[in-house]
């Protein structure tokens, strides 16, 4: 069922990673993603994987939960692997049949790409697992706030993101409910041509839109009643402060980056 999906996937906890400054986490995750693309060989990639494993351990998020984040992109991973195996033809040929050539080079590249994608996904989900969506949007807002001329629009966008994240699960539930109700009135959503099926969605989407507008209206009232008046003069309960471990995190990331660059130079080949 659709409502089983968790959006934002925040996993409450009190680990060092949880307590790190969200801005630092955001910057480091960003840096990590860039560096993972800089890796040219298994040695530097190994260093990145090692760094990631270390961070996962520090976050105290169960490995099972971490692996779950990879599940949705399983198809993409398989697809990438197959493409790389088929299209890379250097190294020793291991298998040949008609137009299919499988070589050692192909397999190495495929493994390399798969590790790269998985690290990418795990690194970004580590961010969402350990940081609440509100804090992430807050962090974006604060990182961009030096851009004075757009401060107000940054606040508005961050607020919109928070509200969207808050309401996605509610709307999914609503969607399920309306679908069941219209099915009970004999609506046929499973058969027919593409056009017919698209048409069959009208009885679901119109009520969904109408409820959403009503919700938006009521939410706006509720926000006004709680004295919301834009970003001006607003304080935050959760202060973002750099701690010792934030600096450690930054130094760690810089060292890993330096390591990756030197490993790239020392070992010019993939393997």
């Amino acid at each position: 069922m659709m409502k089983d999906i968790t959006i934002g996937q925040y996993f409450p906890g009190n680990s060092v990673i949880h307590r790190m400054d969200p801005r630092m986490k955001l910057v480091l995750t960003f840096l990590y993603i860039i560096v993972i693309f800089v890796c040219k060989n298994f040695y530097s990639l190994g260093a990145m994987v090692f760094a990631l494993v270390l961070m996962v351990l520090f976050s105290q998020i169960p490995v099972k939960t971490i692996l779950k984040s990879v599940k949705p992109i399983f198809i993409i991973i398989v697809f990438t692997a197959i493409l790389n195996v088929l299209y890379t033809t250097n190294g020793t040929i291991l298998f040949e049949w008609k137009f299919i050539h499988i070589s050692t080079g192909g397999i190495y590249t495929a493994v390399f790409m798969v590790i790269r994608i998985i690290s990418l996904v795990v690194a970004s989900s580590l961010l969402t697992y350990t940081t609440s969506p509100t804090l992430i949007t807050d962090a974006i807002e604060r990182l961009l706030s030096p851009l004075k001329f757009m401060r107000n629009s940054v606040h508005t966008i961050a607020m919109m993101m928070t509200i969207a994240l808050r309401f996605i699960p509610t709307l999914i539930e609503e969607f399920d409910k309306i679908t069941s109700a219209q099915k009970a009135r004999g609506a046929d959503l499973e058969t027919g041509t593409l056009v017919e099926r698209a048409k069959a969605l009208i009885p679901i989407f119109i009520p969904l839109f109408i409820t959403s507008f009503r919700r938006a209206y009521e939410l706006a009232y509720a926000m006004e009643c709680r004295c919301y008046h834009g970003g001006e003069g607003r304080t935050r309960m959760k202060q973002m402060k750099l701690h010792g471990f934030d600096v450690v995190g930054l130094v760690f990331m810089v060292v890993v980056t330096a390591g990756v660059v030197s490993l790239n130079i020392v070992f010019p080949h993939l393997i």
Binding site: S132, T162, R215, L219, R226, H229, R236, M237
Partner: peptide, 19 residues
């Protein structure tokens, strides 16, 4: 459902005083 703004309980409670 239509008066809770934030994605975490305590962050929502903080919304008013923050404003």
């Amino acid at each position: 459902d239509n008066q809770i703004v934030a994605t975490i309980v305590e962050e929502d409670v903080a919304f008013g005083p923050e404003n």
